[in-house]
Design a protein around this nucleic acid. Structure first.
Lengths: 139, 139
DNA sequence: TTGCTATTCGGAACTATTCCTATTATAGGG
DNA sequence: CCCTATAATAGGAATAGTTCCGAATAGCAA
């Protein structure tokens, strides 16, 4: 029945969790990898990815997908949503509780069993409003 | 200053747009490619991608990103949102108008100039609720 | 028709992520 | 404290989805 494995602790997993908290700005896997490497140079990229997956599965992190191609990770697992800059890809928190809408919608969802919402705003951050670089992804 | 090119019509672009409409169920680039190939076997995958990009840019299509890794395309450009099945990846429309919330939020967005929202629900579709396959992406 | 350049095909390149394999580390008994 | 089962690791290969490139073609304005 494919039961989930018993979790064991590991230095690497702790280091990954730590890095996300210290970076404190919705880092990508690559940014986390670089951060972890600073204190723990032998950690591999695949270890970072595997542990991010585990931490998300355990509910210790949230994975945030926006218009860009990379996944960002958030250690703030409370009910809130995000905004991503179309130009630099930066992700910020917005204090808005989308989960209130979940309970409203299951019946409209044509046969789906609804278990989550992701509300992601897009726009341009204050820095990118000044400088005029190309857009990373125009939706 | 990187001004955008003058658009020309092309058989291929029309075929791509047609395919999205005919498939009528939030197809991915690959599904669109296969559909276009049926009537137009010489069209290349890169042409499909380029035209999807153009059509999205022109506002003729919407690109939908969910928990899966592929982008889905929607010819319904009206104000609504989506739900995606965690298991099979299927995307469906939900008749709910997220744009009403956009105007509420710019000031909370800490310096961002907000220009869009994407509200995507996740869950399990009726078909996948019966059969018990593995989840494509667990957030 | 001519000239400009947007568009095309086809495949190579790229990027983010996952998978693979041999090795190491962890935790729960005995 | 040692044994055993198996979770986790490093490192690199493999994959998937998408973008890029270059030479050839095609749309459109003059």
């Amino acid at each position: 029945m494919n039961k989930k494995p018993v979790r064991r602790s590991s230095k690497q997993r702790e280091a990954v969790m730590c890095a996300v908290e210290e970076l404190n700005d919705h880092p990508t896997a690559d940014m986390i990898f670089l951060k972890v490497r600073q204190s723990n140079p032998s950690v591999s990229l695949s270890t970072v990815y595997r542990n991010l997956g585990v931490l998300v599965e355990e509910g210790d992190l949230i994975a945030v997908k926006g218009p860009g191609s990379e996944v960002h990770y958030d250690y703030n697992v409370s009910n809130h949503c995000h905004i991503q800059c179309r130009i630099c890809g930066k992700v910020s928190d917005i204090d808005f509780k989308p989960v209130e809408y979940v309970s409203m919608l299951p019946e409209q969802a044509s046969g789906f069993h609804v278990d989550g919402v992701s509300v992601t705003f897009t726009g341009k951050c204050s820095q990118c409003l000044k400088s005029k670089k190309g857009v990373i992804n125009e939706y």
